[in-house]
Design a protein around this nucleic acid. Structure first.
Lengths: 338, 338
DNA sequence: TTGTACGCGTTATCAC
DNA sequence: GTGATAACGCGTACAA
C-alpha cells in the first residue's frame, strides 16, 4: 500500500503550516491565490487524496444518505432507487441502501445501523408490518432529515412523497364500473400501509358513487406474493355472485392472476375485467395487456433525492415541503375493454 | 440535538480512564469482568453511542462495501443486489450502491468516489461500454478486494463470479436445434461484455456441432433497449431465408420481441421458436411462456457477498476463489415447443 | 488489570 | 494572509 500523503506532508515540503494547506485545498477566501496554486500543484504532484474519515470526524457529517426499502428486487422499488441514486450522486452524496425484507424487526435494526453509521439523512419506504415508529425517534430528535416515500407514515417534521392513492383507486374502480362491471373485487395488500388502505377507500367511494353495494366479499387482503395467487383464485371461484371486475393492488400480482384466470378458461376482459397498479413494464407485455395506474416511480425517486438534498444544503423548506404528491394517470389497455 | 456521550464522559462518571472504557466496550480480554459490566451498564444508562467517524479514522476502515452496477432498475440486477445486501447486512457491513448507467465515464467517477469515501471492498458489474480498467488500479494497488460479478473482466488478483455463459448459450441454441430449428438468429448485447460474447461462442459452437451454417445474418447486436425492438424486427423480416429460431440475450428483450412478432401475425412457436436468458419473472407470464436459461441472480449476489466478506475477515482464500462459476439450467416452456 | 499518551487527518479558533 | 493549537472520539502501544 502506498504511503498515504497528508496535508502535513504537503505542509512540510512547501514550508507552510497544515492549516494553510487545508484552507488552500478548500479554496478558503483568506488565502492568497499564489499560495493556493502552489499547494494545489504540489498536492497533485504528490498524489494527495483527502481522507474522508478525518473530514467526517471533524465535521460530524458522512456525506451519505441512508435508504431503507422493503425489498430491493422489485421493479418498482428499484426504479425509485434509480431516481434517488441519480440525484444523490449528482449532489456528491453516497447512498447506503438496505432492505427490511418487509419485516419491522429488520427495519428497526437497519434504522439503528444507519443511524449509528452516521447518515446525514434517511429515506424510508415502510415494511409491510410496521406498526410502531420508535426506531425513527433518534432521527427526529437529532434533526436528521427523515423522508418517507410511497409507503409512508405521518410523523412530525417528516416529509412524505406519494401519489394520491385514494384518487387513483377511485379512478381505477370507476373505470371498471364505466366499462360495465357490477360486482368488483379489490385484491389488496396489508391495510396498515397507506398505499393499500387509501386505494381501498377510493375503491369504496367509487362503488358508493355508482350505487353499487359493498360487502366483505368485495375485498380480499393478500400478501401479494406468488404463493397467494391460488388463495385469490379460491376466493374468486367461491363467490355466489360471480365477479366481473378485479382491481389488484399491483401489476405483478395482477399478471399472476391473469395467468391463472386464463388457465381456468375465464375470458379477459369478456368475463372479468382486470386493472392493476404501478404500470410496471410487465403490464404491457402480458396477454391481454393490463390496464393499470401509472405510478411515476423514477420521478418519485428523483423528487425524494432532490428533497433530501435541499434539506441538507440549507435546511430550508423543511416545513413547506411537508408532503409532495405526484401526478398519477389511468392507463387503459386490453384487460378492461368492453 | 442531544449532547453526544463519549467514552470520556463515561470515564469521568466512573472514575476510570478512557482507555479502560474503550477496552471494556470492545470486550478486550485484559479487562476484569466486573469493570466491563460497570462500564457497559453505565453506557446503556447514559445512552452512549460509539462514534463511527472516530472509529473509521482510527482504523482507516469504513465497514462499508461499495457496489457499482450498470442499472438499478433491472429485475436481474436488483435481485443480485438483494442477495449481496442480505449477506453484507448479516456480517455488519453497509452497502454503498451506485449505478454507472451503462457508461464507462460514470463508472470511472463512481469508482473514484467510492475509493475516496473509503470502502473496504468493491463489487462491480461492468457498464456496457467499458474498455479500459485504469479506474480499478487504485483498488488493486492498495489491496482493496475487488470482485467482478456477472459482467466481468479478468484483472490480476480479482475474483469473478459468473455462470458458464458459453455453455448456457450452447445449451439454449442446441435446444432450439433439437426442436427442429435450422436458421437461427442470436440477438446479442455488446460483445465487449463477456456475458454476450460467451453466449455468442456457445451459439456458434452449437451451430457447428449440428452442421448448420453461420453467417453474419445469424447475428444481430443490439443495446437490448425497448427502442431497439423495431430494429430487430426489421432484421428478422429482411432475411431471404426466414428465421425459425431466436436466441435472445435477455428475457426482457425477448418478451418485447414476442409481442412484436405476434403483432406481425407470426406464430410462436410454430413459425419461430424463441428462447431468452435469465429466467426473469416475466418469462413465465408472457404468452406463450418463454423458454429461457435460469440465471441464479440471488445466489450470485449471496455468493458475491460471502466472498467479499471472507476476503475482508481474514484475507484468506483470495487466490483459491479466483473465479466462482454458478450452475445454470435450461428451462423449457411454450415458446420452443415442437 | 488499568492508566497515560499519542496517533488517525482534518477543520476551526485564535492569535499575529 | 498565515501559523499555532485545540478539538473531533476512539484505539492502542507502552508503562505501571
Amino acid at each position: 500500500m502506498d504511503k498515504r500523503i497528508t496535508i502535513y506532508d504537503l505542509a512540510k515540503t512547501l514550508g507552510v503550516s497544515a492549516g494553510t494547506v487545508s484552507r488552500s485545498l478548500n479554496d478558503h477566501p483568506s488565502i492568497s491565490r499564489k499560495t493556493k496554486e502552489r499547494v494545489i500543484s504540489i498536492a497533485n504532484e504528490l498524489g494527495y487524496k483527502t481522507n474522508k474519515f478525518a473530514v467526517n470526524l471533524s465535521k460530524q457529517k458522512s456525506n451519505t444518505i441512508g435508504v431503507i426499502v422493503p425489498k430491493l428486487n422489485s421493479i418498482f422499488m428499484s426504479t425509485v432507487l434509480a431516481g434517488i441514486e441519480k440525484m444523490a450522486n449528482e449532489a456528491g452524496y453516497n447512498l447506503i441502501i438496505s432492505q427490511s425484507l418487509e419485516s419491522m424487526e429488520k427495519e428497526k435494526i437497519n434504522a439503528k445501523t444507519l443511524y449509528d453509521s452516521g447518515v446525514d439523512a434517511l429515506l424510508v419506504s415502510l415494511a409491510y408490518d410496521t406498526t410502531d415508529f420508535d426506531h425513527f425517534a433518534y432521527y427526529i430528535r437529532n434533526k436528521i432529515p427523515l423522508i418517507f416515500i410511497d409507503r409512508v407514515h405521518n410523523l412530525p417534521n417528516c416529509s412524505t412523497i406519494i401519489i394520491d392513492n385514494k384518487l387513483a383507486g377511485f379512478e381505477a374502480t370507476e373505470h371498471l364500473i364505466n366499462q360495465g362491471c357490477k360486482n368488483l373485487l379489490y385484491i389488496s395488500g396489508d391495510l396498515r400501509r397507506n398505499v393499500y388502505s387509501e386505494r381501498f377507500k377510493g375503491f369504496k367511494e367509487a362503488l358508493a358513487k355508482h350505487g353499487l353495494p359493498f360487502d366483505n366479499a368485495n375485498y380480499l387482503e393478500s400478501d401479494l406474493s406468488p404463493n397467494s395467487v391460488k388463495h385469490a383464485m379460491a376466493h374468486i371461484k367461491d363467490t355466489h355472485v360471480p365477479f366481473d371486475g378485479l382491481f389488484v393492488a399491483n401489476d405483478t400480482f395482477a399478471a399472476l392472476c391473469l395467468k391463472e384466470l386464463k388457465k381456468e378458461n375465464i375470458k379477459i376482459p369478456e368475463d372479468i375485467k382486470v386493472i392493476g397498479f404501478n404500470n410496471d413494464p410487465i403490464s404491457d407485455l402480458v396477454t391481454p395487456t393490463l390496464s393499470t395506474i401509472h405510478y411515476p416511480g423514477y420521478e418519485l425517486g428523483v423528487l425524494a433525492g432532490q428533497s433530501v438534498i435541499s434539506h441538507l444544503n440549507g435546511g430550508i423548506n423543511l416545513q413547506p415541503t411537508n408532503a409532495i404528491t405526484l401526478r398519477h394517470s389511468l392507463i387503459i389497455r386490453e384487460s378492461t375493454l368492453k
